[in-house]
């Protein structure tokens, strides 16, 4: 079987599976014995993976919650010239797990061919705000790909650039829609799922309707590659179903006179510019040796960053990231 037909076959298999099953869950047509295998790139096969449980857990959740069937054991490849990439339609890359994002011309050519033939590439941590520095554990909704990813894809597709995915994109509602509710979180209906300020920020700005900052590249009219802030940190579960590891939230809060007070308040660290969804820039102010302190928004508003941690925060974040991650892989299968 040549490479063209094998990738097409895989995609058709996925498409057929979802058209009939996920969207209409009443019927249960026979499924192939082995599930679809996701490839994961590790340039250094012996390198440290920050979230080793993440992808297998997510694939297991998809097997449990949808009619899609994935092999929960990702296929690791260390080079993009590996012939096996043409046998599997989805390639997952956690950019933070790679030693660097420099590839040979042959690898870039193989990747281009892979995407042109119908392959889908998911660049997790492909978006990373500059102020996060070496602390890889943060996620921040910057609306542009990280510079290393931009440089890499300039070599793969010199004629193309990453474009932001708008909030109404199908990727955000292909299976899960909106933000997790109490029932999704498996908590009592009366329980407060998040602190008030956190919930309103999350619902209105951080993840409105279950969306997030994604950028992508279209190839032959098809979304063939997406990049997002790190989502894998929210996918892991232990054998009892507890989420691992704990996640905290950074949210923006305002208060009376903040526009005046923060303008004048003392700060000792640097300032960083970060792209927003509307293309304008936020200016982030930081305190030395601490996490970012506050932000000056282009509309003249000043807001402070507050950090929330705890069980309810972590559970909510995990639930969101897992739903989002599943949507990405299911979208890749359907398109």
């Amino acid at each position: 079987m040549n490479k063209n037909s094998s990738i097409l076959l895989c995609l058709l298999f996925g498409f057929g599976l979802f058209k009939t099953d996920i969207l209409a869950q009443d019927s249960k047509p026979p499924m192939p014995e082995d599930g679809l295998r996701i490839m994961q790139l590790m340039k250094n096969p012996n390198g440290v993976r920050r979230y080793p449980d993440a992808l297998p857990s997510l694939l297991r959740m998809m097997n449990e919650q949808t009619w899609a069937k994935f092999d929960t054991d990702p296929l690791f490849i260390s080079e993009l010239t590996d012939e096996r990439i043409f046998e599997n339609p989805i390639l997952y890359i956690n950019c933070d797990d790679q030693t660097n994002l420099e590839f040979t011309a042959e690898e870039n050519q193989a990747l281009r061919r892979y995407m042109e033939l119908g392959g889908f590439v998911y660049l997790d941590a492909g978006i990373k705000a500059s102020f996060l520095g070496a602390d890889l554990g943060h996620s921040y909704a910057a609306w542009e790909e990280r510079p290393e990813v931009r440089d890499w894809f300039k070599e793969v597709f010199p004629e193309k650039a990453f474009i932001p995915l708008d909030r109404s994109h199908d990727l955000f509602r292909v299976f899960f829609k909106g933000l997790p509710k109490n029932a999704d979180l498996k908590i009592e209906a009366s329980q407060k799922r998040l602190p008030e300020t956190v919930l309103s920020f999350v619902e209105q700005e951080k993840w409105p309707q279950g969306t997030y900052s994604f950028v992508g590249i279209k190839v032959k009219g098809r979304l063939a590659c997406v990049a997002s802030p790190i989502c894998a940190m929210g996918w892991g579960r232990d054998e009892f179903g507890n989420w691992i590891p704990p996640i905290s939230f950074r949210i923006r809060e305002s208060a009376e006179n903040f526009d005046e007070n923060l303008k004048l308040a003392s700060f000792t660290g640097g300032t960083f510019e970060v792209s927003r969804e509307d293309g304008l820039k936020d200016i982030i102010y930081s305190e030395q040796g601490q996490r970012p302190a506050w932000v000056q928004e282009p509309n003249g508003r000043w807001r402070i960053f507050k950090y929330y941690s705890g069980e309810e925060i972590s559970n909510y974040a995990h639930s969101f990231y897992a739903r989002l991650g599943m949507n990405v892989f299911l979208y890749a299968l359907l398109n």
Binding site: E256, A265, W294, I304
Partner: peptide, 17 residues
Amino acid sequence: GEQGERVGAAKLLGKYP
């Protein structure tokens, strides 16, 4: 301060351990 000012002040003091 008024309630709003007190809230803002409490939030701001978090930045100066």
